[in-house]
Amino acid sequence: MTIGSMLGDIVNSFFKRPATGRYPFVRTEAPEDLRGKVVWNPETCTGCGLCVKDCPSQALELFTLDKAAKRYVMLYHMDCCTYCAQCEVSCRSKSIYLTNDEWELASTSRTPFEVYYGREEDVQKVLEPEPQGEPDLSPESKTE
């Protein structure tokens, strides 16, 4: 039976540095294994489409430009991504993975959330489709 049993706490707290922070002005370190923005490596991707298939939030789209030459473009919808790392687990060639340095991804418009990965000329092609190189959205045809 005591009254004010947190007296010690409040006196302590009073002289301690506050536990809360002024976030946008003072930043904290992110842990090493933080799951940040997904990146994709066009050089090693085999175009199997497993990552697209397994992504629970349909955050990935794979455009096949030339299957034989392994020319693919990945469209990553950052706003859909839940940072679950399933794509990283599903990929057998380690072509898609989560980074740990980019995590302050908020934005006031939608455009920065559409991230195209791939060789520059391929991305160009996806963005401005020419009549012959029409990209097809082909996750279905690619699996297993």
Binding site: E32, D33, L98
Partner: peptide, 11 residues
């Protein structure tokens, strides 16, 4: 967060 990389839905 340090173990899994996420603070809420650890996946």
């Amino acid at each position: 967060e340090a173990i899994t990389g996420n603070r809420v839905n650890y996946s």
